[in-house]
Amino acid sequence: MFPAFAKYRQSFLIGLQSNLVYRMNFAVRGFFSLFHLAVVFILWGAVYSQNESIGGFSFGQTLTYFLVMLVMQFFVGAFNEDYQISEEIRSGLINQFILKPINYFSYRFSIFLAARLVTGALILIPLLVAVPLLKDYLTLPTEAWRFFLLAPAMMLSALIQFSIAYCFGMLTFWFLEIQGFVILSMAIESLLGGQMFPLDLLPAWIFNAAKFLPFYYQTYFPTAIITGRIEFAAAIQGFGIQLIWVLVLLAVNQLLWTRGLRRHTAVGG
């Protein structure tokens, strides 16, 4: 147990260093997310100027939702892990992992955690600008259970995010280019993950169907818990489905890895 832990602790630390190199890129991305918040503010501000409440929520609650969603993306969202994995497969860098007693998934996951630590810290900088400006609007529910459930929901979300990115990376064994697939799935994720609008505004039948898809648990679920868009019973039920998706995705990852390796030819590696 402990030697294994030391192994992945090292890869976590390496990941931390290599992600700190790209701190400017992440910071630029964080800066531009402020513009996204401005779009949200203008669009929903115009919508709420004619309506007191939309789907039972006030302007402040909706704005809080989008702000939390943004923070969530930086704390648990996969950024370019799929491309990194794809690149390692294509360039033959994974050959060394086949030969060493290291689990590639765990190795990549520890780097993913390091990356989220860096991006999570960096999003706090634009937040320092945004929160004072928006403080009159921001409002969070006060029930204690929401704060207790947030951390486990975020951890499982991070696992789902990473697993999906890992799956797309694995596609490199079969396809030369995965960018098309990734951007296609980004469209689906941004929609069904609740980044475009709060999912509960969807017609009820679509919303209920979305609950059974993994995308719902990528960012929407933890965001809904902390911003009060989901009740206790629904949150517990959500945990069950989220856990099932984590297991399913882990199994798919393992399957793609073993199947992919069969196709893999380590030329000159």
Partner: peptide, 21 residues
């Protein structure tokens, strides 16, 4: 798909309101 996402945003908002600005 991306165009669809943007159009869906409009149609979802107008489920809840008659006009934007």
């Amino acid at each position: 798909f991306w165009m669809g996402v943007n159009l869906l945003l409009i149609s979802v908002i107008y489920e809840h309101t008659d006009s934007i600005a």
